[in-house]
Amino acid sequence: MLHVNSISKTYHSKAALSDISLTVQPGESIGVIGESGSGKSTLGKIILGLEKPEQGDVHFRGSNLHTLKGQALKASRRHLQIVFQDPAGSLNPKLLVWKSVVEPLENFPDVIPSFLKEVRHDRKKMAEVLFQKVGLSSELLERYPHQLSGGQKQRIAVARGISLEPDLLVCDEPTSSLDVSVQAQVLNLLKKLQRDLNLSLLFISHDIAAVQFMCERIVVLKEGLAVDSFLTEDLFSESRHPYTRLLVEMSMEQEYK
């Protein structure tokens, strides 16, 4: 469904990504992990069509994402949604949150997601269904973002991300700014939605434990290079790249007895 073919990108003549290839099958969850400056967010932006690669191309649903224009580009965007790290920054502070959630549905009046079939004519009802889907009480519909907690805002961002029933959801560090207990709730939610809606997930994170929990396959980026790529169950295998092994070692807890 998504094919990234050996893309490269440089910023200020420094390589941000070199020769990265990646394939995401329908319903599959892929984790991209790396430290800051590894190029993981750049990769996310290119896959979303927000940045152009200098070499290589990205094929999404059969067409080259970076040559699409106009209606065709808009149509592919419907299937390509994102949840950002900072839920406060990704919601319009002057808009009631339920309006933020249904905004994508207003931009695509012809799209009828399966879970909104019965209520597609009523914006407020659609918001209610979406709130329910992400485990938010409908009491919160009439709030502004600043009246909600970080976890609630992130659920709203997730609700908006799935509102068009996209094929691929890109999550860029979706839980790094959340507390431990809330992080667990949001990750459980994403995992459940991914399964229920048969979403493909591209999960970008620096936290190897989060990626292990969420994804079936993992790609490790280091300074713009994909140094390792493997099935999650092989994370502890001897044949892992030394850098992956270092990340694993640093993320382990000591045994306490």
Binding site: Q152, V180, V182, Q183, A184, Q185, N188, I208, Q212, E253
Partner: peptide
Amino acid sequence: RLRLNKHIQHELPTMLGEP
């Protein structure tokens, strides 16, 4: 809490409510 695990959990135990 999230932790690296030999056995991957399917769901993290959570607590109710907000911090």
